[in-house]
Write a protein that binds this DNA or RNA. Structure first.
Lengths: 460, 460
DNA sequence: AAATTTGTCTATTTACATTTC
DNA sequence: GGAAATGTAAATAGACAAATT
């Protein structure tokens, strides 16, 4: 029997004690239902384990076990000393690809590059078809890709700030595919990975699916701090760290050289697996060296070739430390079996072609042009991010939350993504939204969208 | 302190008690190392939990926990009453795609279809390139695929024995990709899935990676028996069942109508998720109805379109019960983001084209022709499987194990796959190998391979 | 047929380390 | 700066159920 009566003490959550199901299981279920049902709001502090245990007349460990289930689902986030909180990173609708039913919306939500390579691709295709060996590309391929394809990739990746070798390359069908393979191949349910407090939602959903806990790392000057990282290594036992050093999604922040070196050093000293997502590194004409350059044996680098050069071709490379190569190869094999040799060949030829530099440059120009329009419409002091970045981070006036703004914008016909979509853990996300400047089909559409956003901001 | 001295009792495994690491962890590690190192051979019976606990002077539960880790890795397999055994399903080299360095080998190991559609594809490509909307196929696609593509797929899947609707279809990049998505989306670490005692290795490796335990189901007349399935539901708490009803890999068995109905019925009654792999269903000109036909709300059907019609195009469809649709869509999104719209369009057009029937028929003829040659070389009483199947199951004479035979064949220049590669759990796999008759590039190569196999069989 | 063997599972015990106040 | 609050995790206890003998 409970010793104290808690009827006088306000408890933020009062679960029922079940009779049929296992206790820990039933508690986890109730908690999940109450979070989903809005009974428990993000940021809510839950009662201490011992208090709950006392209230239900069970042992502390039973509470621990119940809460662990929810933590692996990304619903809770706790710290010794301060307590357990409901996470902000609930992701009801996280779809990042274009909705089919929303042609009436100005789309500035999901990240779409806008590069027109149609003519070049057609030209390349015609050449390929005419070659005598074309038929071979329609059979099953080997899983590795061939030598010249890798060399072409290496040449391109060098431009993104990482100089590597062919024996470390493993092809994947796009950056998200690479992330999924890395998380399944190198991590297991219950493992923890550090991230920025706001991070790419594709990592959030995948980690959630696999039961991997994401731990937000404390920042300083908008990037991961040494103290925060060390703290997470020591106290949260993180096994890996996911970062996007160039034009971080969604904050657009580019990590300093010293920050990169610090992460490399810390990774080596604490045997961390750094997952470095180079998704946007190619946008930069003069990128800083990748973290992988400083710690190649502790960094898995993701080079997404589809973004600028060959959109829609679904080709990325994982550049693996030698120690993890076979695990990663196996994981990619388990997920994909093999890539389409035809598509790989086509994408590789595009990458290796003479026009590749001009394609990239053209894309940069287009992005700058669009951003000029964005700068024109939106107030400078609220708009974060350089003109080369294909998305911007828009801070909101007082009394808006990102979520509210997203909804209002949607009602006004413009899709943007609120900061809540990117939030990891219990910390309240800032009032901000991400706007993808290259997503609207035309300049006119972009203008329409910006006008709506401008009006919404001025209203408050 | 241990009460008894076990020095007089032979214990099949005597672990060290560690001092530094956690007990359960260290024990799991030792066990894994000893299995990998050959100290513990497949089939070995380990000491009972209580005996080990007594010997190490720890609690039974500690042993349970240590062994659980290994079970999730597929290394152990235990039953109440009979004890714990080292599994046969160790998979050192399970790569099913063509090796790059083995052009000197006659390849009859991995499953390659051999269908020549080059001319048709070139024709289709030329048409597509000329169309004004071609450029759209090079952008990011929506994740769902469009309506006519789905209709084309449905028409084809109907020929494989399952009549379904477009709202259940989710595209994937090939059958293995579909399996990975189903296992990550609908199952979690620690869940159990029933399989045939010999099953497709792609499921084995993926399950192992995800910590999902595969439970072999007892058979009767070469297919899963009702008693065996019920037993696994009740006692092993399986949450799913993986089956390949047509030309089962590797035994070539095609499941009876009553077997299909039994599985559908049992799945409904026990709320099982049946994963029905239709990989080879299209090989059959008159297939029986799919299990999914009898239990559409409990069966996730995998329709692999790449195998016969569009090899190398990496297109498959997951046909999902409505209750699991969003979980599976999310999982495929997390793994792939989206498919290449270009490749999907190309493959879909091939599937929808008028020549699709003749392509399939041609492939069937080719397979039959090759199998006639196989029948000619190998003894009838050892050779399992119909002439329409692209692989055969070769029983071996006494004193061979599959593994030994595979090795000898390899040394003689022929690659086949031993039964051990397909084995699940502790049961000793039969002495047999799988030979893929469509894998060799030419008829001559096939003949060369068969001559080698024939000689090896006669020698003993 | 009953007793014994054997694995499974939830909940508890206990020690521990960090953060907060 | 020390005590209290708080979460973590390994190991144990004990009830349970199936398979074997």
């Amino acid at each position: 029997m409970p010793i104290n009566s808690f009827e006088n003490y306000p408890m933020s959550w009062k679960p029922q004690k079940p009779t049929d199901k296992p206790l820990y299981f039933a508690l986890a279920d109730q908690l999940e239902a109450d979070i989903a049902g809005g009974v428990l709001l993000p940021g809510t502090k839950l009662p201490p384990y011992r208090e709950l245990a006392d209230y239900l007349d069970v042992n502390v460990s039973t509470i621990t076990r119940a809460f662990k289930v929810c933590k692996q689902k990304g619903l809770l986030s706790g710290t010794i000393g301060s307590g357990t909180f409901v996470s902000y990173d609930t992701t009801p609708d996280n779809c990042m690809t274009r909705r089919t039913d929303s042609s009436f919306l100005v789309e500035m939500g999901p990240i779409f590059p806008r590069s027109n390579t149609t003519e070049d691709v057609i030209c390349m295709l015609k050449k390929m078809i005419a070659e005598p060996d074309f038929g071979k590309l329609l059979q099953y391929g080997n899983s590795e890709g061939n030598a010249w394809q890798k060399e072409a990739a290496i040449k391109l990746i060098r431009k993104a700030g990482y100089d590597t070798t062919a024996d470390r390359l493993i092809p994947a069908t796009g950056g998200q595919n690479a992330i999924a393979a890395i998380l399944t191949g190198l991590f297991r349910t219950g493992d923890r990975i550090g991230t920025d407090p706001l991070t790419y939602p594709g990592v959030k959903t995948t980690a959630k699916m696999l039961g991997i806990e994401l731990i937000p790392i404390q920042q300083e000057n908008d990037e991961i701090s040494e103290a925060g990282l060390l703290h997470a290594c020591k106290n949260e036992h993180i096994k890996g760290l996911y970062i996007m050093p160039d034009y971080q999604n969604p904050t657009t922040h580019t990590m300093s050289l010293s920050g990169r070196k610090m992460i490399a050093k810390t990774a080596k000293e604490n045997n961390l697996i750094v997952i470095e997502d180079g998704a946007h590194s190619m946008l930069n004409a003069n990128p800083l060296p990748a973290v992988a350059s400083f710690a190649p044996e502790h960094t898995v680098y993701i080079a997404s070739l589809s973004k600028t050069v060959a959109p829609g071709f679904r080709l990325a490379y994982v550049i693996s430390p030698l120690q993890y190569k076979s695990l990663l190869s196996d994981a990619l094999y388990n997920i994909n079996l093999s890539l389409s040799p035809f598509l790989t060949e086509l994408a590789s030829r595009m990458i290796a072609s003479e026009s590749v530099d001009s394609i990239i440059e053209e894309h940069r120009q287009l992005t700058k042009n669009r951003n000029r329009l964005v700068n024109h419409y939106l107030p400078k002091h609220l708009l974060i991010g350089p003109d080369e970045c294909i998305f911007r981070w828009l801070l909101l006036p007082e009394n808006y939350t990102g979520k509210e703004f997203e909804k209002l914008a949607q009602q006004a016909g413009v899709q943007v993504y609120a900061s809540e979509r990117f939030a990891v853990g219990k910390a309240k996300p800032p009032a901000a939204v991400r706007i993808v400047v290259t997503a609207p089909e035309t300049m006119d559409e972009l203008r329409t969208g910006l006008e709506v956003l401008k009006k919404l901001i001025s209203n408050k």
